[in-house]
Design a protein around this nucleic acid. Structure first.
Length: 933
RNA sequence: AGGCGGGUAGCUCAGUUGGUAGAGCGCUGGCCUUACAAGCCGGAUGUCGCAGGUUCGAGUCCUGUCCCGCCUACCA
């Protein structure tokens, strides 16, 4: 075996092992008839085909991969079902942008040509993100890669549509919808994002027709944030009980620009007497509240907008203007007529298109809708009765709130890229024919053959809603459906709880009668180091691949803000990631494992995950630590026959490390099971570094040097066993590193070809041994206490000092005697430490510390600086006195003794005892010091 | 407006059923001790947002309050 370099280099290792796993089908789900293993399934939230891996994807991919790898190692038949989403608007926009660069529009190509062009684009670059997930180490069953517009999935979409239509849960209606004039399509409520903006509350007057000044004012002043919509006003509403306007009930107002009478209506729902002027202009065609008001009062709905967002003929002389322009012009015109009545600043929410940020306009339009209430009820029930569990649980309330207030879902989109709605309109009659297959030959209603298919496509989320079962072959009763449905865990970001998770639950329950997954695991949003949301505009996005492969800051900044001056981009980047100030000019190649460990280290209940490059560095260092631990171990364990079950070693430290391995493995499994990947990874991290490396490997050096042949053999055997087990425990988090090392070390003969297929260690991997754990705890704290004394007194590291250990406890005495050689090795003592029971006398020039029930006396005669030593003693004494007073008070408190649990009282009094011993020792040392002077 | 979450070490965050606060990074003293200087051995650091309450005991439970973030709905 060739020698390992001193520093771990992930760039060399990672691609190699991914290829190996792929080649050996390590990630494939089992489909054999005889396969009776329990099943664990995750459906990968399909990323957009337009997508490129960002930190959110990396977090999702890592979390799901840890879950999958863990279960795979636990012997489950795992299926991680991957795929991509056709992402209607996003994808269409990308390809249209390309066309624009060629000086063309989609209309030049025609629908068929355009769709062909999108497919072509998809084939070329649609799988980029899948490649990137492989770089991250994701162990999905890639042979089963699906796309939402694959023939089988499209079939499922059509089946779902038709069934819902037949069941009267899909209907076509003309109503107010959200319209994006840039994307030229309707949007669902969820695709509209409200953004706060500074606006104006503007007041103007409508003149009364036939107003009688003797009855009161002859005008009615309304308040509005959108003056231009007055061109579509068909009423002005006042509160029925508003004393100011009683004389206006039933009257008519003159529209200043249009040949139209505007009635005054009374409406207690719409109007809040206390707000504005108490009079509300009603524009049913462009406001959701006004629309509802219009329905209540049978008002005319006058649309004043074209599909491109400009005003139409109904706007009279304002026709052709943009909304923004019309707002100015209408105000101007009102002012000219002397109708302006005031204006004040007002905060308002501007609805914007999630995709293109264009201001969304409410518009009257004929669209397809899904009736949500009947679907929502079962989805609510499924979470309430625990058939599906949401973790972290605080999301349950949010989920319930949304589902109980749910509105019907507008599912038609005026796009070309997507699943075209399978509804056919007849030229001869009104009948709409909806069919499962192809184009119907004739109208179901009148038999006419003149049929046109609805040009619209379905909302992308309609097909995503079927994902957990459409990918498994639904509506057919496939073996996959039988074996892998319902899926186990659905892991995703909380931002798509409504878009996707809730809809899958509704659809899943409706179509399959079962919940689509047993648990919903939600992670937070990755934000920059200062807590800001990542966005291109802010120049604070991080590309996981730059971190994995390494990249100069110049390059990162430039890529984040293409087109911007480098200095500016770099400044924004540095501001977003302050810790890079201490990092030179570039991200080194951290490797996928470091990124994965970092992402796992954040608590899942954190809504914001602020990514710190410095933290990644820490985990990179950890990977190097693991690598070097194995590098150290290799020569000692090479050729060892490793058993798959633990042996029963004699030596304390061997029993201890086995016990720790078992505990940590068990804890890791429990934490992963509870989706606390942070706890799990942290437990393994500290086991590896603080226990295995800092202590066990050091113990092993001592024993391999000083021990008897049989002791040495036992250490070698244990070391080989523990290293193999620890790598397996770490594997789900750091798959590349662990595979690389595992393949080099000796391992049990029955292990499969990859660590990824080996069993996850359990409690049984290391028998629990509380005695050994307690003993090593004492041993290490004795060593640390002695080291602290050495360090406090600036001892040369080669200086050998006398060490005396005193305790009343017989077990501890035995332990210290047994391990005196080990203690000598670690503390660098002058001969074997003297072990005995406490005596009244302390040797002059000795410094005392207390570790557990042991007094640790380090002889420093002639090495002490008396002044310094006295100061140290005084400092410690002060602190101890304070603690003693506190504890004594507590132990004197009758209520405490009466109410506190026995173990708490016991711990407290033990603690007090320890402190008293310490105080005694310090006082003694002080006395000696004074005598010395 | 309503809902949810958060305010803990200089920074980013953990903290299970109430029992005198932890990690990583940073800081600091000493070490190139042949696995690792991406390291080793030590060390320092907190009015747990604020004010009350319950309790023998509160970071943890209750009430009020002030900030911050997100979500949902909206006053035209």
């Amino acid at each position: 075996m060739h020698e390992l370099p001193k520093v771990y280099d992930p760039t060399d290792v990672e691609p190699r092992w991914y290829a190996y796993w792929a080649e050996h089908g390590v990630f494939r789900a089992g489909t054999a008839d005889g396969d009776v293993r329990p099943v664990y399934v995750i459906a990968l939230p399909p990323p957009n085909v337009t997508g490129s891996l960002h930190m959110g994807h990396a977090l999702m991919g890592t979390a799901e991969d840890v879950l999958i790898r863990h279960k795979r190692m636990q012997g489950y038949n795992t299926l991680w079902q991957p795929g991509t989403d056709h992402a209607g608007i996003a994808t269409q926009t990308v390809v249209e942008r390309q066309l624009r660069q060629e000086g063309k529009s989609r209309h030049d190509l025609g629908r068929e040509g355009f769709v062909a062009r999108v497919w072509q684009w998809k084939e070329q670059s649609g799988n980029r993100i899948i490649e990137q997930m492989r770089v991250l180490g994701c162990s999905a069953d890639w042979d089963r890669l699906k796309f939402t517009m694959d023939p089988d999935l499209s079939h499922a979409v059509r089946e779902a549509f038709v069934r819902l239509y037949e069941d009267k849960l899909i209907y076509r209606a003309t109503r107010l919808i959200n319209w994006c004039s840039d994307c030229r399509t309707a949007l669902s409520d969820l695709e509209v994002e409200n953004e706060e903006a500074d606006g104006k509350l503007y007041e103007f007057a409508y003149q009364l027709i036939d107003g009688d000044a003797s009855l009161g004012p002859t005008e009615l002043v309304v308040a509005t944030t959108r003056p231009e919509t007055m061109l579509g006003d068909t009423a002005v509403a006042v509160h029925p009980e508003d004393p100011r306007y009683l004389h206006l009930h039933g009257k008519k107002l003159k529209h200043p620009f249009l040949d139209r009478e505007v009635p005054v209506i009374t409406d207690a729902i719409l109007v809040d007497m206390k707000f504005g002027t108490g009079a509300v202009k009603v524009t049913p065609a462009h406001d959701f509240n006004d629309f509802a008001t219009g329905k209540r009062h049978s008002l005319e709905e006058i649309s004043i907008l074209n599909l491109d967002g400009t005003l139409n003929q109904n706007a009279g002389r304002f026709a052709g203007l943009t909304v923004a322009r019309a707002r100015k012009d209408v105000k101007l015109a009102l002012a000219e007529l002397g109708l302006e009545r005031g204006e004040k600043a007002h905060k308002l929410q501007v609805p914007r298109c999630q995709r293109c940020r264009t201001i969304v306009e409410p518009m009257i339009s004929t669209q397809w809708f899904v009736k949500m209430q009947p679907l929502a009820e079962p989805a609510l029930a499924a979470v309430r009765d625990g058939r599906t569990e949401i973790i972290p649980t605080e999301w349950v309330k949010t989920y319930e709130h949304w589902l109980t207030n749910i509105q019907d879902w507008c599912i038609s989109r005026q796009l070309w890229w997507g699943h075209q709605i399978p509804a056919f309109y007849c030229d001869a009659c009104d009948h709409v024919t909806v069919t499962r297959t192809g184009t119907p030959s004739a109208c179901e209603g009148c038999g006419s053959t003149g049929l046109r298919q609805d040009p619209d496509v379905l909302d992308t989320w309609f097909s995503s809603g079927l994902w957990p079962f459409s990918t498994l072959g639904w509506p057919h009763e496939t073996p996959e459906m039988r074996r892998f449905y319902p899926t186990s865990d659905l892991e995703t970001g909380y931002d798509i709880l409504f878009f996707w998770v809730a809809r899958m639950l509704m659809m899943g329950l409706y179509f399959t009668g079962e919940v689509p997954f047993r648990r919903v695991l939600l992670h937070g949003m990755v934000v920059d180091e200062t807590g800001e949301k990542m966005s291109k505009v802010k120049g604070n996005t991080l590309d996981p691949l730059d971190l994995i492969h390494g990249s100069s800051f110049d390059h990162v900044a430039q890529r984040t803000m293409p087109g911007a001056p480098l200095a500016e981009a770099l400044q924004k980047f540095k501001k977003a990631y302050p810790s890079t100030a201490q990092m030179g000019q570039a991200f080194p190649a951290y490797g996928a494992d470091s990124i994965r460990l970092t992402l796992c280290s954040y608590s899942p209940q954190a809504k914001r995950i602020s990514l710190s490059p410095k933290r990644i560095e820490g985990y990179r260092n950890f990977c190097n630590k693991v690598y070097n631990a194995v590098r150290y171990s290799l020569p000692h364990i090479e050729g060892q026959a490793v058993a798959s079950a633990p042996s029963a070693p004699q030596h304390l430290v061997n029993r201890w490390i086995l016990s720790r391995l078992g505990s940590v493995s068990e804890q890791a499994s429990q934490s992963i099971e509870a989706f606390r990947l942070d706890e799990a990874s942290s437990a393994i991290y500290h086991f590896f570094w603080d226990e295995l490396c800092d202590w066990y490997l050091e113990f092993s050096k001592a024993i391999l040097t000083l021990g008897t042949p049989s002791e040495q053999a036992e250490v070698r055997q244990t070391l080989a066993y523990v290293v193999e087990g620890a790598l397996r425990a770490l594997h789900p988090f750091a798959p590349f590193l662990t595979e690389e090392l595992w393949q080099r070390i000796p391992r049990p003969s029955d292990r499969p070809l990859s660590i990824a297929l080996s069993p996850y260690p359990t409690r049984e991997s290391g028998p629990v041994d509380p005695t050994a754990e307690a003993a090593v705890q004492l041993l290490t704290s004795v060593i640390t206490a002695a080291r602290t004394i050495r360090s406090d007194h600036d001892l040369d590291k080669t200086a050998k000092v006398p060490l005396e250990l005193r305790t009343h406890d017989p077990d501890s005495l035995a332990l210290l005697n047994e391990q005196s050689a080990l203690i000598q090795w670690f503390v660098k003592t002058d001969g074997a430490p003297r072990v005995g029971v406490p005596e009244a006398q302390r040797p002059a020039g000795a410094v005392t510390a207390v570790a557990g029930n042991v007094e640790v006396l380090v002889g420093l005669r002639g090495l002490l600086d008396p002044a310094k030593e006295e100061a140290r003693i005084e400092r410690n004494l002060k602190k101890i006195e304070r603690d003693i007073v506190g504890l004594e008070a507590r132990l004197k408190n009758e209520n405490f003794l009466k109410n506190a649990p026995a173990d708490v009282v016991e711990v407290t009094s033990k603690e007090l005892e320890t402190l008293r011993v310490q105080r005694l020792a310090l006082l003694d040392a002080k006395k000696l010091l004074l005598e010395l002077n």
